[in-house]
Nucleic acid binder design. Structure first.
Length: 149
DNA sequence: GCCAACGTTGGC
DNA sequence: GCCAACGTTGGC
């Protein structure tokens, strides 16, 4: 089993939204590196649910991959914010996943606190200028973050 | 709202 | 293939 981290703006979709509905489609990723990581995910993998672009950026909980990557339908939907005019049903470059809620942390583990942890210095999340929205997490990093709760 | 950093686009 | 211009991300 592998570990990951995925970012979401809580105004759009938060860990509590996922908790409420139990399972959801993770879509709208429009970056190739992030997409490639999504395609590498397997059912049962767990990920940190990160809240970005909000008053309290940080890790808000844990989710699990419920279904491996499949073509992202929002890329084909002209009504969608994530519509990609270059995508077609035959050739859709973007991927979506089904994810399940696992755990909502009692409090958000804030980004500034994560940045203070030397054991997490290798994570793209804490590196200056990095905007990667989907990234792998090592087992060691996973354990360190869990220990911060 | 600002702006640094990055990815993408498109002219050449 | 280069690179300037532009759009986006995301912390602050």
């Amino acid at each position: 089993m592998a570990y990951w981290l995925m970012k979401s703006e809580p105004d759009e979709f938060s860990i509590k939204d996922l908790q409420k509905i139990g399972e959801a489609r993770w879509d709208g990723v429009r970056n190739y590196q992030a997409r490639n990581f999504m395609r590498a995910m397997a059912v049962g993998d767990e990920f940190f649910f990160y809240h970005s672009s909000c008053p309290e950026p940080g890790i808000a909980g844990v989710g699990r991959i419920a279904q491996a990557a499949y073509p992202d339908p929002t890329a084909l939907d002209p009504e969608s914010h994530y519509f990609d005019p270059k995508a077609s049903p035959e050739k859709n470059p973007w991927s979506a996943l089904q994810v399940a809620h696992v755990h909502t942390f009692p409090r958000v583990i804030k980004l500034d606190y994560l940045k203070q942890q030397s054991a997490l210095a290798e994570m793209p999340l804490v590196q200056k200028g990095s905007r990667l929205s989907v990234m792998p997490v090592t087992a060691e990093e996973w354990a360190v973050v869990m220990g911060l709760l």
